[in-house]
Design a binder for these strands. Structure first.
Lengths: 253, 253
DNA sequence: TAGTGGTCTAGACCACAGC
DNA sequence: CTGTGGTCTAGACCACTAA
């Protein structure tokens, strides 16, 4: 009895089709994001209600809800029961995994990077451990000095499994965003990052690179970036001038 | 025609009832959390699938999904399409708004607090602004030195609107968690917090209080805590010894 | 092939805010 | 009162993984 399936008349009118290849809720988000980015929607302005969005996008209420719920987690909108959904003050995108280039762009700064070191190494035990690899694995090590507004802003060291990114060292890593290269050329889907943040003092080498006094406080971030499938892709150890950076996050109870 | 409503026979069997006063998806979360906390479920162990949870808790699939989706955002579980949902490694609860007392407890440390200052003031312009109040509003100012493991760990200054918390200065703020007092005695439902994190150097006063050298790097966190209804409840400015703290967060792409 | 999570429907009732 | 977001149903089909 292969045709035991019922396929109710009511079921599945458009869902199988995803115009643009994107899920409906993400398409709705894209529209709202665009309206905010373009200034068409200002902070405090009301976003269309769940019911409006459902109607205009021809989706069910749950789908429209899903779109708004995610935007709220990002801090892009605020939802108030009985009142509506509103564009949030522009506190920068909370808890959003972005490349350094993207972060600077969000602050209307153009970031550049100077590559100080780019080789395959096999003696980086800690990095290997963070990537869940054996201690002496072949690892791409990439040291970059980050500039913005004509000043040195930060110093980052990236580690990636060499076997996963053949030829990466020949890519234009000096000019292009590493995120962009990974996503476009290596088809890596970045999913999330776990980060450890603390404060530390600039050692002589870093102080000189960042053009600040020795012992100056720095923000230190250790970041393990995972793919959407949960595989550790990259470990980044970064030191950020504290007079030029502050981390903005949102926590929920 | 007031009775135009249809009330389909199929609709609403149990939903109106919330045994325990809690939404179904939160009850499911509570059960899973309990099993993890008690060690009954270890990191890597599979969590019941959406369909299992739906069956055993007598809810629909969407509701079970909702429960698991939130637990994933907290970093408590990991979901893998086609495979299942698993208890995540115990990286501490990401992006979770917790009081200092709760955070230390999660690290199996007992925190205590010494109150250095507790008065109503009206000249804290910046704090007032963070709380969205007029510049010279009456504000409760509370300075506390945080101890754990017999050492000074951190220095925090809290600001709350005085009109919202009458009598707070008479509460046992030295012994009890401020979060607990607010939630229990003032019926405040804490919702989320926006935080700005950077690094700074210890000034003479803070260095002495924390028993560290001057100019030592500290983690500085400015935190605005909001109620579930989006009202700013408390502003906390904290300095944390960087050798005793690191912030753990998760970001999503 | 069976089982998982991901997306989606077409509604429902509730709690809440503002008029 | 209307309109909003919050919770929920009883399914559906899809994409994916593993046996």
């Amino acid at each position: 009895m292969p045709s035991g399936k019922k396929t109710l008349a009511v079921a599945q009118r458009f869902p199988a089709r995803m115009p643009g290849g994107l899920p409906a809720y993400q398409r709705i988000q894209r529209v709202i994001r665009k309206r905010i980015d373009s200034g068409q929607l200002q902070p405090g302005d009301p976003v269309p209600s769940e019911r409006d969005l459902a109607k205009t996008h021809h989706v069910s209420l749950m789908t429209a809800r899903h779109a708004l719920a995610f935007l709220e987690r990002e801090g892009l909108v605020e939802r108030r029961r009985g009142i509506g959904t509103f564009v949030a003050p522009p506190k920068i995108h909370f808890n959003k995994l972005m490349s350094y280039t993207e972060q600077m762009a969000a602050r209307t700064l153009t970031a550049s990077a100077k590559v100080l070191f780019a080789e395959i190494v096999d003696n980086e035990n800690e990095a290997a451990a963070r990537l869940s690899l054996p201690p002496t694995s072949a690892i791409i090590k990439l040291e970059r000095l980050r500039h913005a507004a004509g000043e040195p802003f930060a110093f980052e060291t990236c580690y990636l499994e060499a076997a996963e990114c053949p030829g990466l060292l020949d890519a234009p890593i000096a000019r292009e965003s590493l995120f962009g290269i990974l996503e476009r050329d290596y088809k890596v889907e970045l999913g999330y990052a776990d980060e450890e943040v603390d404060a530390t003092a600039a050692d002589p080498r870093i102080a000189e690179m960042l053009a600040i006094p020795r012992r100056e406080p720095l923000l230190r971030i250790r970041q393990v970036i995972y793919s959407t499938k949960g595989k550790a892709i990259m470990y980044v150890l970064g030191f950020y001038r504290s007079d030029r950076h502050n981390l903005v996050i949102r926590r929920f109870r």
